[in-house]
Write a protein that binds this DNA or RNA. Sequence first.
RNA 1: GGGCGCUUAGCUCAGUCGGUUCAGAGCGGCUGCCUUACAAGCAGCGGGUCGGCGGUUCGAAUCCGUCAGCGCCCACCA
Length: 875
Amino acid sequence: MEIPSKYNPADVEDKWYQYWTAHGLFHSEPDGREPYTVVIPPPNVTGVLHMGHMLNNTIQDILTRRARMLGKNACWVPGTDHASIATEAKVVAKLRSDGISKANLTREQFLEHAWDWTRNYGGVILTQLKKLGASCDWQRTCFTMDEARSQSVIMVFIDLYNKGLIYRGKRMVNWDPAALTALSDEEVFYREEQSKLYYLRYRIEGEEQYVTIATTRPETILGDTAVAVNPNDPRFTHLKGKKVIVPLVNRPVPIIMDDYVEMEFGTGCLKVTPAHDENDYEIGLRHNLEIIDIFNDNGTMNADATMFIGDDRFDVRKKIIPELERAGSLVKIEDYTNKVGYSERTNTVIEPRLSTQWFLKMTELAKPALENVMNDNITFYPARFKNIYRHWMENIRDWCISRQLWWGHRIPVYYLPDGRFVLAQTREEAMTLAREQMPDITDAQLRQDDDVLDTWFSSWLWPISVFDGIRFPDNDDIKYYYPTNDLVTAPDIIFFWVARMIITGYEYRHNYPFKNVYFTGIVRDELGRKMSKQLGNSPDPLELIAKYGADGVRVGMLLCSPVGGDLRYNDSLPQQGAGFATKIWNAFRLVKGWQVDATLPQPEHSRLAIEWFRHKFGAILEQTNVHFEKFRISDALMGVYIAVKDEFSGWLLEIVKPEYQHPIDGKTYSEVIGIFDSLLRMMHPFMPFVTEEIWQLLDERADGQSIMTATWPTARCCDEALLAQFDDAREAVSGIRNVRTKYNIANKDKLQLFVLQGDKGYAPDYGSIICKLGNLSALTRVEKEIPDAATFLVKSTTFFVPTGNFIDAEEELEKLRKELAYTQGFLKSVMGKLNNERFTANAPEAVVTVERAKKADAENRIRSLEEQIRALVKD
RNA sequence: GGGCGCUUAGCUCAGUCGGUUCAGAGCGGCUGCCUUACAAGCAGCGGGUCGGCGGUUCGAAUCCGUCAGCGCCCACCA
């Protein structure tokens, strides 16, 4: 078999991905095994893969692949989200670029375009995930707007309505004047801005007195229906019962007293515009104020404004100032910093607006969801997100679930001509129900609600709906796969998605939707900026995969991503990952290149090294398993990285490697192959492709066999003492190498080594290994020190390497004296503790014993150093 | 305004129960090697008063207080 000298990921990755899918290795069906379930956070159907997806899905794949190897029935369900508002915005933009206006289309025509778009671009992202190696069960791919998911959403809406949790009401909502839809509170983000605070005076009716108010939004005075002051404010008690005249429109409005007004802010007088501010609305309700809505839904002024009709709100803000000045109402303008709400989607300023929407009462629903996170029935990694979650859940507000869009699940409410309505799964059903109330109703008279549901109203069902557990609560899939095990997601959707899935989990399955939630960090660029399309600072994941291989990119992403911590990405990371793949490949080439001679006996050093490695591997594997349990995936990877790069390649292979063009004994060979196999299995979840390629070449494999379904290695308990002794041997080897470096002794020149054994620091058993790696001609134990030799120390054992004439006595002497001084100082500090009665009296016995041992060691060392110095000085 | 978190080597980060596995890892840097698997390599070496200051303790990166800087979440001061 010809093994390529270079590993080229592009040559093998697609091949194995096809192999895995062709043999159905990602597919899961319920069986007798323990299930392991992950549902993907469904990316937007029209999205493309970005670095955040790469990180997130790499972690999910690692967890899934490992679970599969642990013998669990692993099922990772993929899918996409219809992303109502985002997709609709994209389709609108696309139509506009084709010269088509949404306003000129019927709902049906528009949806036709949207579905076309979805069919054309939808799922691209799933193809991209395949490049990454994602072992999703593609047969189970779901879409939040496919038939089963849509029906589930409608059923849940009807159910919650019937439970009295969904209601329709006219409320102050966040209005997006660009998308022309209401938004939930979570879809609004606040940005600090430099703006102006305008001081305006209102004349008191029938007097030549004025009150001055302060506002950041002078254009809204056109909708003012009161001026409010604090009832406890002595400055304004005389105004009680009077009216003021709103400037420009000359409308008399009452002066009202309300606790809401802060006496310290501005002038202590507040203009009240109930239609365009949530607090003003509340005040309006308390005082039964008139509500004048002055805006059209796109943010322009309507007829009720009486002025600037048709102008945009921000233009009006500029235009109204000179008008106010002319009217003598402008007192002053101050610079002011405040926070302005923006639509997360369209990036336009949100307009608080009174409108009729559908809401979901959250308080009761949230209770079990809060409790079961706080008591760790659902465990958050890292735990600090519990606090954030708790705060939100404890202050949860009703959820505005209706959107004035077309792309989404249409609200299943059907209105009769008289305003009554029925809820139904289908139009036919609705007709039947409607006839019960109005026997002669015609189909044309029954009108379905025009609005669609918030996207998250479908994704909050995801862990249930992908197994069709809403429609068929007793089906085999949902019973087997639910609850799922781990959810891997970004913290920015903790409220949008995670919290709400937990709510539906308890509401519809009486159990949590997932046991663990792993929050990834945010991928940033080298400057610490969030990667974003606008900044153009995000590399194209597919280009990275093409350049470094999927394995390289996966490893690169993980090497620096602590749980919940942000990661700074740069190209050296996948480079390192790709380098690691190459390292593994080269180790494989070495092993596979050996000639095997079955008649050769196994050398002592090989036998010892393999025994040692088994223990080392066990220790690392155990540690890796612990890391996995704590979701410390980066640490788990680092363990594997060290195991392969340092322990296996750097030490084991160097020891067992036969001399050039010499054959290796059969026993060592087969044992090394076995070890390699274990290492590959341990690496596989991180680097699925290169491990599969090598695993297939390492031994004869039947068609359909895959490392994917091989078993995760098991750790034998390891002998700590043995590992410690081997470390001493390694230190001795390092000591010899140091001597070589220091005295410029070539590697091929054999050296002699003498050992003056102390009570620690030398394991005679490993002499054969020291000989091999140190390239020694002899290793001799002695009873006293060897003159004219370089020395080094491992614990209390001294090693001597005769170096002939290479020694520089002066330099050596200086070094010894330096060490002597250091050790004496150390001894002094130890003695300080031991002579301190409070220490010996209060510290635990074990600690005192340790200090005593330190003292003895230091004294020994000082004696030894003094002798060496004497010997040198004598010369 | 409230809450949470962070600050350890040039960079990214570990550091559990306060004490010999406490000052660590990877990357980078420096030096020397093209030593026959691998220069995507090997060998070796530096590098941090653990953000500042106090306190508790026989003993503090670790516990407490405080100050500074950074980040995140939430919140109706116009």
